[in-house]
Design a protein around this nucleic acid. Structure first.
Lengths: 333, 333
DNA sequence: CTGAAAGCGCTTACAG
DNA sequence: CTGAAAGCGCTTACAG
């Protein structure tokens, strides 16, 4: 590995001149500049990241923290990682992936050792144990997911209560009076995942305002049970004329379940989904609020980078809720 | 951020003693040791990663390189990232995520700057452009996916030709004479994904030995077309008594397609899958060779770490093909 | 426009 | 059993 000293020698200048030639922080004679560039190319020189981090107190690395469940799966990975990685790269940052397999301490480790300049946290729950560590850390962070206490934190999320209102209003306006609601699995609520709670309760209260009757049900926890659970839900409420689905697996399973039951959309049943779909996925064939994780991921990275680079002490941390948008796919009547 | 000097001061010893107390590379008086430990705890001291990397020429970071397709999706992420991350953590390594969005140069960047001690590459294709960079880099790497030229590389993969033989032999032994084969989409072949080619051609040649007739078809490239393409395949070969599926989406779509066509398994049709399923996923309801990515990921990390830490110049790099195993789920007769 | 030198925070031979 | 000092490879004030 060539060092800056090798480059200096080859170009016949001092190390400081090489450094300035590369950083552009001081004027360098054109002729000198080209000699340096030449030497850099010939030697294939790349600055040592550790040395740079030491001198600059800056790593150009963003920590991406995600939750791995007991089965070893990390659902968020699918939807968020690729867009976040691309966004970070475009801004000159690499990504250090941290699964919280060893709890909040993982956060402390990468933060206190100066491995990262800032953090993006996914899967943030209402009383997330990582938040205390985060507040103590002197690195900026952006959360995706709204915790109960947002004091001093930068948070990004879809506005789920607003999404609930959009969905319920849409169905109410079409004249529906009885609506089945499939929420995320019970386990997701138990884990304190905020959007599960927020969407559900906003649905219920908005429905009350309209005088709508809502039948809430938890989706199946396991993939295999998704279809059967939906079947049971349909059997339980033959009077419901509309269905709201807030569970990706149920959305995916729905077409075949409806087909089996010979229920036509929107003839026999109106369907609205609240769906997280990843890049490359196909949106569901239903009218839906599409919560695009790619968009949230990009926003998070941008926000974080501006925090990390801005003259400290500008805009205070805050919560940004992305406005939901209902895409009509003709599955309601 | 506390530095080693702060700790030394607080404990009333020299910086070298703190360093040795922490690394254990030199004997330290018990009383001194506990004073140092105390100071470390009180100050919340964590060594600066950059400084350590500089002094040790070692980062304790593994680079994980994956392919992001044109839609911005990274299919491998889903299956490999969580297990690889866990395996790395257990061995004391963090993970730097690199998407090859800016091509092979991304590899050069993290490798030449000393950001990582070694690399795990996913989605390796037959004539992967990253391989030249890899051979030039002086960091060890382990590939998942078999390239055409494996000289000097450490490679891990499922033994796909063997898988094909297991599958074909199984069907031949049951007396099937006409078999439909659903391969990955045409685009996957075009990208040079080795396992697509290897499984397909091994299926065909093994079938020839048995005198079996195989009807090969590409799966749909897009999610939405998966079902319709399967339908078309069934219509084209009413005489086939067995189906081999080497495409995850087709495997997932199969139950509802068969249901719609009123085809019973294994009564009307025997089904064997070659399926990649991630942690937390449910295996398909078919007799299958389950290519467990978690297992491959763990193996890759272990192999890499032993390369990075071992007294240099032990076992030569080589190819390890994992033996496929057919799990009988009663979908054949 | 350029260079010599100090400093970032570690580790580790060298002395004692 | 412990410390003073050199060195890892950068950046940047200080001089000229």
């Amino acid at each position: 590995m060539a060092t800056i000293a090798d480059v200096a020698r080859a170009a016949g200048v001092s190390r400081s001149t090489v450094s300035y030639a590369l950083s552009g922080k001081r004027a360098v004679a054109p002729e000198t500049l080209s000699r340096v560039r030449r030497a850099v190319r010939d030697l294939g020189y790349t600055p040592h990241a550790g040395a740079q981090a030491l001198a600059l107190a800056r790593t150009e690395v963003i920590g991406l923290v995600l939750h791995v469940d007991h089965t070893g799966a990390a659902p968020a990975v699918t939807r968020y990682v690729a867009p976040i990685s691309s966004a970070a790269r475009r801004l000159g940052y690499d990504l250090l992936l941290v699964t919280d397999i060893d709890g909040p301490s993982a956060l402390r480790r990468i933060t206190a050792s100066g491995r990262v300049d800032g953090l993006v946290l996914l899967d943030v729950t209402q009383d997330d144990l990582r938040l205390p560590v985060l507040r103590a850390a002197e690195r900026p962070a952006v959360l995706i997911g709204l915790p109960r206490d947002v004091g001093g934190l930068d948070v990004l999320d879809l506005d789920f209560p607003a999404a609930a209102e959009v969905v319920v209003d849409h169905l109410a306006a079409l004249g529906h009076r009885r609506v089945t609601l499939v929420t995320p699995p019970r386990e997701v609520f138990a884990r304190g995942v905020g959007h599960a709670w927020r969407f559900r309760s906003a649905c219920l209260s908005r429905a009350r305002e309209w005088g709508l009757r809502v039948y809430p049900h938890f989706a199946a926890a396991r993939q295999v049970d998704t279809g059967p659970v939906l079947d049971a839900v349909f059997r339980a409420h033959p009077d419901a004329t509309a269905l709201v689905v807030h569970d990706d697996r149920s959305v995916a399973a729905l077409p075949s379940v409806l087909h089996r039951r010979a229920m036509r959309v929107p003839g026999d049943l109106s369907v609205v989904a609240l769906h997280f779909w990843g890049a490359g996925g196909t949106p569901p064939p239903y009218t839906a609020v599409d919560a695009a994780p790619a968009e949230l991921g990009r926003l998070a990275v941008r926000r974080l980078v501006s925090r990390m680079t801005a003259a400290s002490g500008d805009e205070p941390a805050g919560v940004t809720l992305v406005r939901p948008q209902l895409t009509d796919r003709a599955s309601t009547a």
